[in-house]
């Protein structure tokens, strides 16, 4: 077995990245600039708005979508985060999560539809998703640096890679679960492809798709923390610095803030599917 020469997978990967970098550098740069604009815009907005205002708006949204208990939890939780002095970094994190989730939906939903409609596309997309989800995040954290440098943009891009699979998978699944009789109904009345999709399939797939988006939000939140390793800042940045300086107290505070944000986002988005 040792007589077979070692397969130079590492060298090939390096070569591929170098090739991509030199040939698609300008394209990725434009994308990175756009993304940076979105993230920075959201961050600027959240920081500019008075904290009281944001806290009350989130509590109202929580009340509306998830009920009184979650509303009270949101109110107290966010006040606690503010009290800890973590407000600014929390807003940075939320802006990153929102940017990542928006892009996941923008790319993931159409890919999910494609997968559900086209068996060949399905067979190509699914293994890629497996690859994306099981490849350790640190492994693609690194190649993001030569493309996008250090900072918030590569952090969000790796987050997108990590958090998008459930959106694609559950859009695909939701569309495939539409009962055959309802598909026949659409066709028997002469619906076009788009009419079928918009009037029948997507509304019926909605709860499943929203479960995917809920997962996407949770994964994004966990990933933006890891992405602080390549300079994404936010709450993760505090955690990362605390680890490096063995400052356990600071790290725990940031950790609790992340948990609070996670619970609020999860409960609100979980109930999106049920509300009607």
């Amino acid at each position: 077995m040792d007589s077979i020469p070692r397969i130079p997978l590492a060298e090939w990967t390096d070569a591929l990245i170098a090739y991509l970098q030199s040939n698609f550098g300008t394209g990725t740069q434009a994308f990175a600039d756009g993304l940076e604009g979105l993230i920075k815009g959201l961050q600027g907005l959240f920081i500019a708005l008075p904290p009281e205002f944001i806290i009350i708006v989130i509590a109202i949204i929580a009340w509306w979508l998830a009920g009184k208990k979650i509303a009270i939890f949101s109110l107290l939780g966010l006040l606690f985060v503010y009290n800890l002095g973590l407000w600014m970094v929390t807003m940075e994190t939320i802006a990153m999560v929102i940017s990542a989730v928006l892009l996941c939906m923008l790319i993931g939903v159409p890919l999910g539809i494609l997968g559900a409609k086209n068996e060949t596309a399905h067979r190509i997309i699914m293994p890629i998703l497996d690859f994306m989800q099981t490849l350790p995040a640190f492994v693609y954290l690194l190649p993001a640096i030569p493309f996008f440098g250090l900072g918030v943009v590569p952090g969000v891009i790796t987050t997108i890679i990590f958090a998008m699979p459930p959106v694609i998978r559950l859009t695909d699944l939701g569309l495939k679960q539409v009962p055959e009789e309802l598909i026949e109904l659409g066709k028997s009345f002469g619906s076009t492809f788009w009419q079928m999709l918009i009037k029948i399939e997507l509304p019926l797939a909605r709860p499943t798709m929203l479960a995917g988006i809920n997962q996407c939000i949770m994964l994004s939140l966990s990933m933006v923390v890891i992405a602080s390793m390549i300079g994404a800042k936010g709450l993760g940045g505090i955690v990362w610095r605390a680890i490096q300086t063995l400052n356990m107290g600071k790290g725990f505070e940031a950790g609790v803030a992340i948990v609070i944000i996670a619970i609020i986002l999860d409960r609100i988005t979980q109930n999106l599917g049920k509300s009607r």
């Binding site: 009962p179 009789e181 309802l182 026949e184 109904l185 009345f189 002469g190 509304p203």
Partner: peptide, 22 residues
């Protein structure tokens, strides 16, 4: 032409009703 035919000329009633729940 088939689409037109289904739209205007004939319609179908299903065993399990096939109503849109939303």
């Amino acid at each position: 032409e088939l689409e037109e035919l289904r739209k205007r000329k004939m319609s179908m009633v299903f065993q399990r009703f096939a109503l849109l729940p939303h």
